Simulated assay, not measured.
Amino acid sequence: MGTFRASFEFPPSPHAPGMARRLLGELFGAWALDGARHVDATILVNELVSNAVDHAGTDVVLELDVTASDGWLRVGLADGSTIRPVVRELDHSAPRGRGMQIVAELADRWGSEERDGGKRVWFELGSP
């Protein structure tokens, strides 16, 4: 398999997580990627985009970058906020706050980095 790359921009709207999930699904099909990690990748991209929409609080366009190469999938999401995500301690009484725990659990690797006055949060998935 060679290296495949795609990049998409979309507004930080309530529809953004669904758009990102559909785009990722289309890429899995177009690139003939192993479907075994498709569910994990879909959950993870949904969490990243949902967090950006809920917490970044910017009108800056979201940029989703997807790269697949040699059994690895890397997805990054850039937004205009400099606030980096953290994995919070689980609070069973809180109705929210589990997103980054899900990312930390499902991703083989994840992190964040500065990018053009904002940040990029990324995750990687290897072959199962």
Rank of each mutant, 00 (worst) to 15 (best):
S13P: 10
S7C: 15
T3Y: 06
R5W: 04
L24K: 08
G18S: 11
R21V: 06
G117Q: 09
D65N: 15
A30W: 12
S127G: 04
I83E: 03
L48V: 06
E124K: 14
L33D: 07
P85I: 02
V87A: 00
T42R: 04
L90W: 01
D40Y: 13
L90Y: 08
G71W: 03
V103S: 06
V86T: 13
I43N: 15
A16I: 00
D54F: 06
E114L: 13
A52P: 14
D40S: 15
G2W: 01
F4P: 03
E26Y: 07
L90R: 09
K119R: 13
V60M: 02
L23T: 00
D116M: 02
G99A: 07
I83M: 09
F8I: 05
L73P: 03
E113H: 13
R96V: 06
L73G: 00
F8Q: 13
L44Y: 04
G126D: 00
P17Y: 04
P128Q: 12
L64C: 02
R120Q: 11
P95R: 08
A78S: 09
T67R: 02
A41K: 04
R115W: 15
S69V: 15
A20R: 11
H92C: 04
K119M: 11
P95I: 05
E114R: 14
P17C: 06
K119F: 02
R22N: 10
M100F: 05
F28L: 05
L73W: 00
G18D: 04
L24I: 08
K119S: 05
I83F: 01
R5F: 03
V53A: 12
D70Y: 05
T82K: 14
D34C: 10
L62Q: 13
L44C: 09
R96Q: 14
A94P: 12
S69T: 15
R120P: 14
L106K: 02
F10I: 10
A104S: 02
W122C: 13
G2E: 15
D116C: 07
L77M: 07
S7L: 13
L27P: 11
P11S: 07
S93L: 14
K119P: 04
S50Y: 11
R21M: 07
P95C: 08
L73R: 10
V87R: 06
P17N: 03
S93D: 15
H55M: 05
V103A: 07
V86I: 09
T82E: 08
E114S: 14
V75P: 13
L33V: 10
A36N: 09
T67K: 08
D34A: 08
L77D: 00
R5P: 07
E113D: 01
N51T: 06
D54L: 09
E47S: 06
V75L: 11
D91L: 12
A56F: 12
P14Y: 05
T58D: 01
M1K: 04
